[in-house]
C-alpha cells in the first residue's frame, strides 16, 4: 500500500486533515465574510455571542468583532506556522546534514552552536530576540524559526550518522560521486521521513509560541492574531470569559489538527514501527 493510502486509512490522521482543512477554509474565506479591517471598532463592546445577529461570536472589550478576528487570525496563525516551520527545517536540515555527514570537528563545531540555542528555554530566547529586534509580525515569525531549528538539526544529524555508514553510501563514493550529491540526492531522501513528521511538532509549537508572545502583548499589535485576542480578553477574563475562550479553542483545534496530521504521517511513512495489528 502506498504511503498516501495508509494515511487516508488512519482515523487520527484523517480527523487532523479535516480540522486543518477547516482552519484553511477559515483563512481563505476571511476576506469574503469580513472584507473590512478586523481590528476596526464595529459595535458596542462586550456583546455576548449569539446575542446580536450582526456579531455571531460577540465583540471584545474594545468593540471589535470576534468572528472577524477569528477568521483573519487563522491566516496569521497558519502563516506563522508554515513560514517558521520552513525556516526551522531549512536551517536544521542543512546544519544536521553537514554535521552528520562529515562528523569530526565540523560536527563538534555545529553541535556546540546548536547547544548555545538550546541552553535557553525556547520562549526566553524568543523574548530576547523580540526585545532586541522588535515585534513586527515578520520579525516574530523569523525569530520563532530561529529558536526552533536545533531540535530539527539534531534529528537530521542522527539520521545522517546512521545512514552515512550504510553500504549504499559507500557505493556512491566508490562510483566517484561528489559529497554534495551524496548528501542531497542519496542520503537526504532516506533521512526525510522522520523530519517531515517532526515538522508537525515544530508547526504546532510555532503557533503556540506566537500566541504566548501575543498574550504578553509582545507580538505585533497591528494584526488580528488569536494570541492578541486572548491577550485583550485577559482584562475581562472573569466575566466575559468568551473573549479569551473562543480564540483559545481555535488554537487548540489548530494545534490538535497539525499534531494529528503529523501522527498520521508518522504511521504512514514508518509503517513498520507500528508493528503488526
Amino acid at each position: 500500500m502506498s504511503a498516501l493510502g495508509r494515511f487516508l486509512r488512519n482515523p487520527a490522521g484523517l480527523i487532523g486533515l479535516v480540522l486543518l482543512l477547516l482552519v484553511l477554509a477559515a483563512a481563505v474565506s476571511a476576506s469574503f465574510f469580513y472584507p473590512d479591517d478586523p481590528l476596526r471598532l464595529a459595535g458596542r463592546p462586550l456583546q455576548w455571542p449569539f446575542a446580536n445577529p450582526r456579531f455571531p461570536l460577540g465583540t471584545d472589550n474594545t468593540g471589535r468583532d470576534i468572528a472577524a478576528q477569528l477568521l483573519h487570525g487563522a491566516r496569521i496563525s497558519l502563516l506563522i506556522g508554515v513560514v517558521a516551520t520552513l525556516l526551522s527545517l531549512s536551517i536544521g536540515v542543512a546544519v544536521g546534514a553537514i554535521a552528520g555527514y562529515y562528523g569530526g570537528w565540523v560536527d563538534d563545531a555545529l553541535m556546540r552552536v546548536a547547544e548555545m540555542f538550546q541552553i535557553l528555554p525556547n520562549f526566553l530566547l524568543l523574548l530576547v530576540l523580540v526585545a532586541v529586534f522588535g515585534s513586527e509580525i515578520g520579525t516574530v515569525t523569523v525569530a520563532i524559526g530561529i529558536v526552533s531549528w536545533p531540535a530539527t538539526a539534531r534529528l537530521t544529524r542522527a539520521e545522517f550518522l546512521t545512514l552515512r555508514q550504510r553500504e549504499f553510501v559507500e557505493a556512491c563514493r566508490t562510483l566517484g560521486m561528489r559529497d554534495a550529491r551524496i548528501i542531497l540526492g542519496e542520503i537526504l531522501p532516506n533521512a526525510l521521513p522522520p523530519v517531515i513528521v517532526y515538522a508537525g511538532v515544530v508547526m504546532a509549537t510555532a503557533i503556540l509560541l506566537e500566541s504566548a508572545l501575543a498574550f504578553l502583548n509582545l507580538s505585533d499589535p497591528n494584526v488580528a492574531s488569536w494570541g492578541n485576542l486572548i491577550g485583550a480578553g485577559r482584562a475581562v477574563l472573569r466575566v466575559q470569559w468568551y473573549v479569551s475562550a473562543i480564540p483559545g479553542l481555535a488554537i487548540l483545534l489548530t494545534v490538535l489538527a497539525v499534531s494529528l496530521v503529523g501522527q498520521g504521517l508518522n504511521d504512514a511513512l514508518n509503517p513498520r514501527l507500528k508493528g503488526t495489528p
Binding site: R166, E167, F168, E170, A171, C172, T174, L175, G176, M177, R178, E186, P189, N190
Partner: peptide, 24 residues
Amino acid sequence: EWRRETRRIQMVFQDPYASLNPRR
C-alpha cells in the same frame, strides 16, 4: 582525480540489503 579514476576499480559490498539505496 580519484573520482575520475574510480571507473577503473569498483567494489561489490557484503550486505545486499544495505548496499542499494531503497529509494532509487
